[in-house]
Each structure stands twice: as structure tokens, then as C-alpha cells.
Amino acid sequence: MAARWLAPHPRVAIVHAPTALERLDRLSHALDGPTVWVKRDDCTGLAGGGNKARKLEFLIGEALADAADTVITAGAVQSNHARQVTAAAARFGLRTILLLTETVTGRGDAYQNNGNLLLDRLLRAEIRRAGDVESAPVLARIAEEERAQGRRPCVIPVGGSNAVGTLGYVAGGLELLAQLGALGVNATTVVHATGSGGTQAGLLLATRMAGAALDVLGISVGAPVERQRGRVLQALRAAAARIGISDLHAVDAAVAVDDRFVGPGYGRPAAETIAAIRIAAETEGLLLDPVYSGKAMAGLIALIRAGRFRRGQHVVFLHTGGAQALGAYADDFAL
């Protein structure tokens, strides 16, 4: 099925696929609720792994097909996306320009020098810093400057969540559905962190293509519900048009977002985020991050405790990665 829809699109091999689908017995026991599974997309490879690797298979594939020699993208200072774009570019011999914005203010030296930013420097990205600005026009201006110097830039949007990048999670969603089927696991829901929207959009398209009764619940990491739904819908419709899928009414209606676990804002973990990171580490040796997966796990835990998911059910937690940023948030952990 994946070959039919995805084969026409340029793609490179990056992801260590299939990523593992593991049962979290000790966490499930501690929460006294459903059986929780984790889809280990923190283990996709590529400078520590993470969900962006799936998107980059198609984004870098398109860049190479267009004979690009430079990739340009943006993110916050501790952007997982920026790290993985830089790593993918290095692997395929491309130059990288990162626009890192001060989206998260008031952080200390660790945030400004450790974590993903340290890895960006190690991977030899050309880093440009800016305040809390709208990145798209700045990226467009940088691209024009590069063209004027005779280079062939490819601009990758924040999070890689355009029509091309979203195809990565069409493939990832179909992979997950195949694993659940092989194990005979009838999961009700996949829960994950949703930010730029492409991961959720791709998962939803995969369920539509496979005719699967699997709900997709995005735990927002920054935006309120309607704004986040809009991001997901934009990515979903763009990707659907790219691969020739119409009749999206049922899929549009299935875009589910919970924004109650954002905490103080994007890149700012709440106490419940830190608690979720701790329980995942202490019960399963599973490392989450304070910006994305920690908030998603906080949402899943709260929903289990509220009775949304119960004993006898199976729920999948999609681990989108990000533990590389933990060192930048050391001050949030009293260790």
C-alpha cells in the first residue's frame, strides 16, 4: 500500500525502520489503566533520532532531486528539527543554514549553549540568531541571498510539516498499523506531541488509507486547540493533494487536539511535564524531553487517571524524540 502512494516521490534512506513498538509493562502497572505501548521514533537514527527523520527522507529526497546544494530552515534555539535537518544535510553533502529564534525567553546559559545547540555546532551548521520573529519571510530572504551568490538553496519550513514532509508520517503511520496487526493488538488511540502539525496529519492520512479504526490524539505543545487544528488540517490537505487523496471530510473531523498540557507556553515545561519525564525514566528507562514528548506523556497520564483510557484497552504513545535537549533544561530538574 505504501509503495502505491509514496513511490512516485523522491526519497532517501535515513530512518532505522521499522522502529520498535514496545509494551511498557511497568508504566502501565504504575498507572493502573490500559496497556501502554511506545512507538520508538526517538530511535530513528540520525544524530540521536526523532520524528523529523521520517519527514527528512522525503524533504532531502526532493532537495537532491532539485539539485540543491544548501538547506535552510528555522526553529527555536533548542530545536530538535534543526538538529536533524543539519545531520541529514551532512549525511548527503549539503550545506545547512539555521535560523534559530528566541521563541523561549528567560532561559539560562545551559539553554543557550548546551543540548541541541551544541549538536548543531558539532554538525557544522551555519547558525544565524534572531529574536522571536516570523521565520518564513526571513528564510525567503536568506534563500534569495544564497541564489544571488550562485547557490541552489532548498527552504524547509519549521518542523518540516509541508506537503512533502508530511509524507514521512504517512509512511510511519502505515508502519505502525502493520506492527499492530502483526501483534494482534487492537489499539484504540495513538497519543503524541503535536506542534507544527505534520506528524499528526500523516498519521491521520495513514489511518484513512488503511481504513483503520485508530484514533489519533495530538497533545499540543504550544498552540491553543483551534490554532493547532488549523496547522494539522493545512498539512493534511496539502499532503493529501500531493498523493491524490480526496474526500477528506471524515479525516478533517477526526483531527483531535488537547491543549491542556501546554503549561507556561512553548518550550516551558510545567510541573506535570517534569513529573511525566521522571515516571517514564524511573519505570521504563525511557527518556522524554521537556518541550514535546514530556508534555505528551503528561497528557496521556492525566487522561488515564481521568478514566479516558481504561484497563483492557491498548494505547500507543508515539515517542517523537528530543532527549538531546535535556541538558539544556537541567535547571528544571532538582537532581
Rank of each mutant, 00 (worst) to 15 (best):
A3C: 03
A7S: 15
P8Y: 07
P8G: 09
H9V: 14
A13Q: 14
V15S: 08
P18G: 04
A20Y: 01
L31V: 01
G33H: 01
D41T: 06
G50Y: 07
G50A: 09
K52I: 09
F58C: 05
E62W: 04
L64W: 05
A65F: 05
I72F: 06
A74L: 04
A76Q: 10
Q78W: 08
A82M: 04
R83K: 12
V85L: 13
A90N: 12
R91D: 07
R95G: 09
I97K: 14
G108D: 15
A110W: 01
A110Y: 02
Y111C: 02
N113L: 10
N114E: 15
L117I: 15
A125G: 12
R129W: 14
A148Y: 06
C154Q: 12
V155P: 05
G160L: 11
A163M: 03
L167M: 12
V170R: 05
A178M: 06
A178P: 03
H192F: 05
T194G: 04
S196E: 00
Q200H: 08
A212K: 00
I219Q: 00
P224G: 10
V225A: 13
V225L: 12
E226N: 14
R229M: 11
V257H: 12
D259P: 10
D259Q: 09
R260E: 14
G263M: 11
E272H: 15
A276W: 02
I277S: 04
I279N: 03
E282V: 01
G285V: 04
L287V: 13
D289W: 01
D289L: 02
P290N: 06
K295N: 09
K295V: 08
A302F: 08
R305V: 06
F309K: 04
R311M: 11
V316D: 10
H319G: 11
L326A: 13
A328P: 11
L335H: 13
L335R: 13
